[in-house]
Amino acid sequence: MSRSEYDAVVLGCGVLGLSIAHELKRKGLKVAVVGRELPEDVQSTGFASPWAGANWHSFAVNEAEERRDEFTFREFARLSKELPDLCERRPYFYYWSEEGRWQIPWYKDLVFGYRDLPPSEVPAPFKFGVTYEAYTLNTPLYLQHLASTLRALGVPIIRQRVSSLDEAYSLPSVGPVNLVINATGLGARTLLGVEDPLVHPAKGQTVLVRAPDVKECYGLVDLLSRPGQSSYIIPRPGPDSHVILGGCYLPNDWSTGPNPEVATLILQEAHKLCPRLDGKGGKGTWKDIDIISHNVGLRPVREGGLRCEVEERTTGQSRRDLLPKGGKVGGGRKVAVVHAYGIGPAGYQSSLGVAIEVGGLVDSWMKQGANGARAKL
């Protein structure tokens, strides 16, 4: 078997794959990133990353998730100072009318200036509210920033469809490697050698609008009558005055077309949260909102949450009858894969914390000299 100049292949060009590649490069590994979609494919529904809002609003339900989100939050503070067109700190406002709907979040003391709003600061028709400051991202630009900095560091980002995990250890464009990072998102459901039945999509739908007067994030805490529907407003950093209006969360819905009824409800509810969206100082209606596009993305959800672990394996032993030719090269090799998929709607706000965690797993595996890997870290 010819020797490769690379130590690892990262499968997946979403925000997790690119963030992990950065962390491994920082640790001194030579890595290549491989994906069916590239970071520039911002119109593709084949991966979720281009379609996210995205704001830092933690959904963490355990200590591991809190740790990932907190690390990312603190890194966003640095990013907002260095690249304000990609990441910006701004006020958040959450409103509701049904008493008891809001639960004090674990991150109350992490964000800036968390406080309950007095009735005089809660706009009609709502009765309660909270505010604090956190970060929002311009997701398409952030993806391209991650990609361009990787390329500048000599990390190739290769467009290639990989249908089996075994193929990734012997890609002609990379050469043989003993380590693969599986950041394939929804692809983990069908990737031969993984085929995780716990992975499923959760459809999200948003409306991208232009609203120069809206600089704050807003969210509705009350439930809406349509199942899976919610209401939130996320201004994107940068000079374009773009604002994301959402949204919905529809598990196991694979459709990638926007639903006009959902879009109408998104616009109506967003205008209630922030009438200034109409561009007329709140004196217009939701029909006056300046629409740029209707968007749909499929969140890569996994029952039980993110899978983040090392698996040692032997190539050529899983579904050999279905393996493409490339997956049969070097059969019987002792290798490893670090799985990092199933993040659901938390990709951006957890991404840098997940990358650190994956880096630690890789570090431990290589220090053990497992499977003949170079213990170079």
Rank of each mutant, 00 (worst) to 15 (best):
Met1Val: 14
Ala8Phe: 04
Gly14Pro: 11
Ile20Thr: 12
Lys25Met: 00
Leu29His: 13
Ala32Arg: 05
Asp41Val: 01
Ser44Pro: 01
Thr45Ile: 09
Ala48Trp: 03
Trp56Glu: 09
Ala64Ser: 11
Ala64Tyr: 01
Glu65Leu: 08
Glu65Thr: 05
Phe71Ile: 15
Phe73Ser: 13
Arg74Lys: 13
Ala77Ile: 00
Leu79Pro: 02
Pro84Glu: 07
Cys87Glu: 01
Cys87Gln: 02
Tyr94Glu: 14
Ser97Trp: 02
Glu99Ala: 15
Glu99Cys: 02
Trp102Ser: 02
Pro105Cys: 13
Trp106Pro: 07
Leu117Glu: 13
Ser120Val: 12
Ala124Phe: 13
Pro125Arg: 06
Lys127Ile: 03
Ala134Met: 01
Thr139Lys: 04
Thr139Ile: 01
Ala147Ser: 15
Thr149Gly: 05
Arg151Leu: 03
Ala152Glu: 15
Ala152His: 10
Val155Ser: 01
Gln160His: 14
Asp166Met: 07
Asp166Pro: 05
Ser170Glu: 12
Ser170Asn: 15
Pro172Glu: 03
Ser173Asp: 02
Val174Ala: 01
Pro176Leu: 04
Pro176Ala: 04
Val177Leu: 12
Leu179Gln: 11
Leu179Thr: 14
Thr184Ala: 04
Ala188Val: 02
Arg189Trp: 00
Leu191Glu: 05
Pro201Cys: 12
Lys203Val: 03
Gln205Arg: 06
Val207Cys: 09
Val209Ala: 11
Arg210His: 09
Arg210Asp: 00
Val214Pro: 06
Val214Tyr: 07
Ser225Gly: 03
Arg226His: 11
Pro227His: 10
Ser230Ala: 11
Ser231His: 08
Ser231Arg: 04
Pro237Cys: 05
Pro237Thr: 09
Gly238Thr: 06
Gly238Pro: 04
Gly238Glu: 06
Gly247Phe: 14
Gly247Met: 13
Tyr249Lys: 12
Asp253Pro: 10
Ala263Cys: 14
Leu273Asn: 10
Lys280Asn: 06
Gly282Asp: 08
Lys287Gln: 15
Asp288Thr: 07
Ile289His: 08
Gly297Pro: 09
Pro300Tyr: 06
Gly305Pro: 02
Leu306His: 05
Ser318Val: 15
Arg320Met: 06
Pro324Glu: 08
Lys325Asn: 10
Gly327Asn: 10
Gly330Thr: 05
Gly331Glu: 15
Gly332Cys: 11
Arg333Val: 05
Arg333Ser: 15
Tyr341Cys: 06
Gly342Glu: 07
Gly344Ala: 14
Gly344Pro: 00
Pro345Arg: 05
Ser350Thr: 12
Gly353Lys: 03
Gly359Met: 08
Val362Ala: 10
Lys367Leu: 14
Ala370Gly: 08
Asn371Met: 11
Ala375Arg: 13
Leu377Arg: 10
